[in-house]
Write a protein that binds this DNA or RNA. Structure first.
Lengths: 248, 248
DNA sequence: CGTCCCAATATGTATATACATAATCGCCAT
DNA sequence: ATGGCGATTATGTATATACATATTGGGACG
């Protein structure tokens, strides 16, 4: 097929079909229309949409996968990945210490506690390959009377069986875990997010207000232990990291 | 064809033909066996050599071309390119690298450049105790056609006098500084923020949309060098930090 | 002798097809 | 409920084929 025929009349650039598919999908992802985790159309759907062969679609998707924008899973489809980049070291932060450093009384309050078999989302967050029992916790950290941070946590009960017996009513799971499970590796993800209804309600802020989200995954000798997401109202929190260059 | 059949018996890894062609040629180029300017075998020659179809060879060569290792000329053949001169840069948060890791073309564009004596706010940001000349820069980092990050920077001209002569029209000040000023210490501040009118306009997002803000202050042997603030649209960016505890 | 045009050639893009591989779903027996 | 197993499905890789496009080289012709 001629490239000229592909060019639409409204002043678009001359693009090969392959490039057009590529840039269409990139645009969707970078604009946020397709958020991370979103399943993009199957190859056969794109084949129909662009009226081309599967090979052409496949080439475009393979390229996006290589660039790290999407992740492809057989039998499941292709999914938008979290954008990634490296930053320097951060401290593992303990919220109680942060709050007390502000001279405010600290309090933890459990909102929810649920024991279940891990679903696909749980496994993705924890980095588990097989299904197993997990504990899902949600709680609020208070500084004085004001909510300081919302915590959403998953605990891998295969790695920390004793957690199943704990209620975590007023004891935050973070310190509890640190005392029992030595961690060998951790990963932080930090991003900004608009508060949805549920989060706004819990933190007593307006829906749509900007929040800082810190997610941490922790391993103990190859075993995923826990995944936790802290959501801070933007005004309440700044992460600080200070460092000197390593020999590069 | 099965992948196992391709695997040769002498303990090689299991590679697809496509990957094997790729790594063979890469090896030749990186080892210097094929110097820049050298014409690599025609597709039909590689087709014969690897006993595969032209499509497979073409896919491998296209990939090498996209990676910038070779240059392809119709009717003439494919040639080894001059090594792209990427100095390694340190792991500190280089936006060009982040963008290129996404497989997108990178571009920097200056918005504003202003030389002035530092006011109170400038001194606070830089950590200066006395007034002196500073250079205030604002620019946009693009990923393809889309703004990826807004950069607002102050450079302490007492520490980096040569910066006063530089226009920074298409050269981002970050890499420029790294090449000239050795830094001994840095501090990051990370927070979330709602985009105000000016930021929303520059980044082509809605006012009030959540943004991730990364501020960095850098010192070179006690002298404040620069303060920079990167503003990312929330969807476009997640900071990732992976680490192990310092002492077992 | 120079110019124009055509044939040859190497790459660029796309199709239809085939089979391999991995993951999941649902059925079935326990 | 639970675990195993086969069918189904989406992706991964490769082939043969076709035609488009850019560039070069050589021949026809003024």
């Amino acid at each position: 097929m001629s490239l000229v025929e592909i060019d639409d009349i409204e002043g678009g650039e001359i693009l090969s079909l392959h490039q057009r598919i590529l840039s269409d999908i990139r645009e969707k992802i970078l604009s946020g229309a397709w958020v991370p985790g979103h399943r993009i159309p199957f190859e056969h759907e794109l084949t129909a949409q662009y009226n081309c062969s599967r090979m052409t679609v496949n080439k475009a998707l393979s390229q996006l996968a290589k660039a790290g924008l999407i992740e492809r899973r057989r039998r499941s489809g292709s999914f938008v990945r979290q954008p990634q980049s490296q930053a320097a070291v951060l401290e593992l932060h303990d919220i109680r210490i942060e709050v007390e450093a502000l001279g405010l009384p600290y309090r933890y309050e459990r909102l929810e506690r649920l024991k279940r078999r891990s679903g696909a989302e749980d496994r993705a967050l924890l980095g588990l390959s097989q299904s197993g029992p997990v504990l899902a916790l949600e709680g609020l950290h208070f500084a004085g009377e004001r909510p300081f941070a919302l915590e959403q946590r998953l605990i891998n009960l295969s790695a920390v069986a004793e957690a199943a017996e704990e209620e975590f009513l007023e004891i935050a799971p973070g310190p509890w875990l640190i005392g029992r499970v030595p961690w060998s590796e951790a990963e932080h993800r930090i991003r900004a997010m608009a508060a949805d209804e549920a989060i706004a309600d819990a933190l007593d802020i307006d829906a749509g207000a900007p929040c800082l989200v810190v997610e941490r995954r922790t391993w103990s000798a190859e075993y995923p232990v826990t995944h936790v997401r802290f959501v801070y109202p933007a005004e309440s929190h700044t992460l600080v990291a200070r460092f000197t260059p390593s020999q590069g």
